[in-house]
Design a protein around this nucleic acid. Structure first.
Length: 558
DNA sequence: GAGTTTGAAACT
DNA sequence: CAGTTTCAAACTC
C-alpha cells in the first residue's frame, strides 16, 4: 500500500537537518535518540512531531553502548559494526515489510533515518518525511515512550568498572523489561542481554539466566576462555577485579537483581519467579553481597554439572585476605599517626624556642594521646569485618563530614579504598580549612595537628609515608602474584595430570591451608616471613606491619 | 546465504 | 489485557 514510492533507491543517507529545529522539545528528543541508538550515526532523527510526550526526564544516560546495540560479538548480518571495534557505523536495517516506519525497524526505532540500509521500500527518509511523521505519530500514540531509551541507568548513575571488561552494566536496566521465554535471556534476542545489562524486576522473562551470579551468564563471559591459555590472563583479570579472599572468581559488583535469589533459578518457576524476583529486586538481606563472598561454587546442586564449571582463581587468591586489608588500613593509619607525631615533636622542639609554652605542651599532649586513640580505632576496625570496616562514621561519629559523603553514596568502600582515600581526605581536609575532629579515624590524626604551615608539612609527610607503605604493600602483592603465576603456569602445563591426581590437588590445598595458618601467625613470625616473601605466600600482612626503615613497629594484635 | 528461531511490536 | 500475528534480528546449518 502506498508503496508507490517504488523501491528505486530511496534516498537514504539523508542527513537530516532542519526538521528538528522546530522546537526545543525535539532537541531533547534527539538527545534521547542518541542515547538510545547504540550507533546513532549521523543524524539522530527527530522523529517526533510535536507530541504529547510527557516531559521527559531523561534517564541518566546509560552510555551509548546501551540502547540497541551491538554487543559482544555480533555476526551474521551484513551489517556494519560487526567488524570488530570500529563500529561508528550506523546500524543498517533489512526491513522488507514495515517500510521502516514501525518499530520493527531499528533505524526508525532509534530515531534515525535509514542510511545505507538494506531495507526495501523504505519510507524512513527525508523524502518521505510526511509519511514518516505520520508513522511517528501513530507510534507515539500507541506508546508515548516508544522512542525513548529503553535502558535506563540507575539513579546512582555509576557503572561498574567491569563494563569495560565485558561485564554487564549492572546498574542499568531495561525500562520495560524483556519477555523472553526460550533464550534464557542469554542471547541477543533478549533486549536486556543485548544491551549488556542484567534482567531486572521489570522483566517478565522465563527461565532467566541473565542475572548476577548466574553461572550460565558467567560462563558466557568467561567460560569460553577455558580452552586456551587465557587461563593465566584470566586469573590476572580476576585478580584485578576481585582478588580478595579465597576466591578470585569475579563477583559481579552489585547484585541488582537476582531472580529467584537465594534459590537457584534453574528451579525457577516462571510464575513464581516473578514474585521472588520482585521481592529480591532490592536484594534481600539474606542474599549475600557478592563482592567478597566466596565463590559461588558450591551454590546449590544445580550447577556443578553445568557446561562450564570452570572456576578460576586469582593468582592472589589466598594471599590477600580481608583481614589483611584491615591490617593494612590499620598500619597505614598508624604510620600516618606516627609520622604526625614525629613531625609534630620535631616541630614542637623547634617551636619551643619561639612559641608559647602552653601551646606546645598542649600539642604534645594531644600527640601522646594520639597513639592510644589510633589503637582504639585500629582495634575497632579489626573487630569489624571487612565490609564494615568502611563504616568509619560508625567508629567515629563525630567525623561525619568527609566520611558521610561516602556513606551517602551508599557505596561501601573496601578498607583498601579507605586507606587510599586517606590521601584524598587529607587533601580535601587541607583545602577545606580543617576543623578538629572532622576527619574519619584513618585521618583524624590530622585533626590533632596544629594548623597552618606545620600542618601542611605533616600532611605531606603523612601522605608520603602512607603512599610509600602502600606501594610496598602492592609490590609484595605483585611479588606474591608472580610467584603464584609461576606455579600456575607450571600447573597449567600439567593440568591434565593434576586433575587426574587428587594427591597433587590435596597437596596444593594443604599448602594453601598452611599459608592461611601462617597468615594468622603472630606478628613476629609474620615479620620473619616478610623478610623473605618468596618463602611464604602469607607474608603480606606482616610486611605491612613491619616498617622497612624501622620507623614503625605498630602492633596490631588481634 | 538460506532457513529457523526468537521476541518485540502490532494487531485483534 | 490477553492472545495472535507480523516482523526483522539473531542464530543455525
Amino acid at each position: 500500500m502506498g508503496e508507490g514510492e517504488g523501491s528505486d533507491i530511496p534516498p537514504k543517507n539523508v542527513q537530516f537537518d532542519l526538521v528538528s529545529a522546530s522546537n526545543s522539545k525535539k532537541l531533547a528528543r534527539q538527545l534521547d535518540f542518541n542515547t538510545f541508538g547504540g550507533t546513532p550515526v549521523t543524524a539522530p532523527l527527530p522523529p517526533l512531531p510535536e507530541q504529547s510526550q510527557p516531559p521527559v526526564t531523561l534517564p541518566p544516560l546509560p552510555s551509548a553502548k546501551l540502547g540497541k546495540p551491538e554487543s559482544p560479538k555480533s555476526k551474521s548480518r551484513p551489517n556494519s559494526e560487526t567488524k570488530d571495534a570500529t563500529p561508528k557505523k550506523q546500524k543498517q536495517c533489512n526491513c522488507k515489510h514495515s517500510k521502516c516506519l514501525k518499530l520493527y525497524c531499528e533505524c526508525f526505532a532509534s530515531g534515525i533515518y535509514c542510511d545505507g540500509c538494506n531495507c526495501v521500500n523504505c519510507f524512513n527518509n527525508v523524502d518521505n518525511e510526511a509519511a514518516r511523521r505520520e508513522a511517528v505519530e501513530a507510534t507515539l500514540e500507541r506508546n508515548p515512550n516508544a522512542f525513548r531509551p529503553k535502558i535506563a541507568s540507575s539513579p546512582h548513575g555509576t557503572r561498574d568498572n567491569r563494563e569495560e571488561a565485558g561485564e554487564v552494566l549492572i546498574l542499568a536496566k531495561h525500562n520495560k523489561g524483556c519477555h523472553c521465554k526460550k533464550s534464557g535471556c542469554l542471547k541477543k534476542y533478549c533486549e536486556c542481554f543485548q544491551a549488556n545489562i542484567l534482567c531486572s524486576e521489570n522483566c517478565k522473562c522465563m527461565d532467566c539466566k541473565n542475572f548476577e551470579g548466574s553461572e550460565e551468564r558467567q560462563a558466557l563471559f568467561h567460560g569460553d576462555q577455558n580452552n586456551n591459555m587465557a587461563f593465566i590472563q584470566q586469573a590476572a583479570n580476576a585478580a584485578i577485579t576481585g582478588a580478595i579472599g579465597s576466591s578470585g572468581y569475579s563477583s559481579p559488583p552489585v547484585s541488582r537483581k537476582r531472580k529467584g535469589s537465594e534459590l537457584w533459578p534453574s528451579v525457577k518457576d516462571p510464575s513464581v519467579s516473578k514474585l521472588g524476583q520482585q521481592a529480591n529486586a532490592v536484594r534481600g538481606p539474606g542474599a549475600p553481597s557478592s563482592s567478597l563472598s566466596p565463590a559461588p561454587v558450591a551454590r546449590v546442586g544445580h550447577a556443578s554439572s553445568g557446561p562450564s564449571k570452570f572456576m578460576y582463581r586469582s593468582l592472589l587468591a589466598d594471599i590477600i585476605q580481608p583481614q589483611h586489608l584491615k591490617e593494612l588500613c590499620s598500619v597505614l593509619v598508624l604510620v600516618a599517626g606516627q609520622a604526625t607525631k614525629t613531625l609534630t615533636d620535631q616541630k614542637n622542639l623547634m617551636d619551643k624556642h619561639t612559641e608559647d609554652r602552653t601551646e606546645t605542651s598542649l600539642a604534645s599532649s594531644n600527640q601522646e594521646q594520639l597513639p592510644n586513640q589510633k589503637e582504639a580505632d585500629v582495634e575497632k576496625a579489626m573487630a569489624d569485618d571487612c565490609s564494615s570496616a568502611n563504616q568509619t562514621d560508625k567508629t567515629s561519629p563525630e567525623n561525619s563530614s568527609s566520611d558521610g559523603t561516602d556513606a551517602s553514596k551508599g557505596r561501601p568502600m573496601s578498607p583498601g579504598t579507605l586507606a587510599l582515600m586517606c590521601d584524598e581526605q587529607d587533601t580535601m581536609f587541607m583545602t577545606a580549612a580543617p576543623s578538629i575532629g572532622s576527619m574519619p579515624h584513618a585521618c583524624n590524626t590530622s585533626s590533632q595537628l596544629p594548623r597552618g604551615q606545620g600542618a601542611t608539612e605533616i600532611y605531606a609527610e603523612q601522605e608520603r609515608i602512607v603512599l610509600t607503605k602502600f606501594r610496598d604493600f602492592l609490590n609484595r602483592v605483585i611479588t606474591m602474584g608472580e610467584i603464584n603465576e609461576t606455579k600456575c603456569s607450571s600447573l597449567a602445563r600439567s593440568e591434565s595430570e593434576i586433575q587426574k591426581d587428587p594427591i597433587i590437588n590435596s597437596t596444593l590445598n594443604a599448602r594453601t591451608a598452611a599459608a592461611h595458618q601462617q597468615g594468622r601467625a603472630t606478628s613476629n613470625s609474620v615479620a620473619k616471613a616478610v623478610s623473605n616473601p618468596t618463602t611464604s605466600t602469607s607474608s603480606l600482612v606482616p610486611c605491612s606491619l613491619v616498617s622497612e626503615n624501622g620507623e614503625i613497629k605498630p602492633k596490631v594484635e588481634k
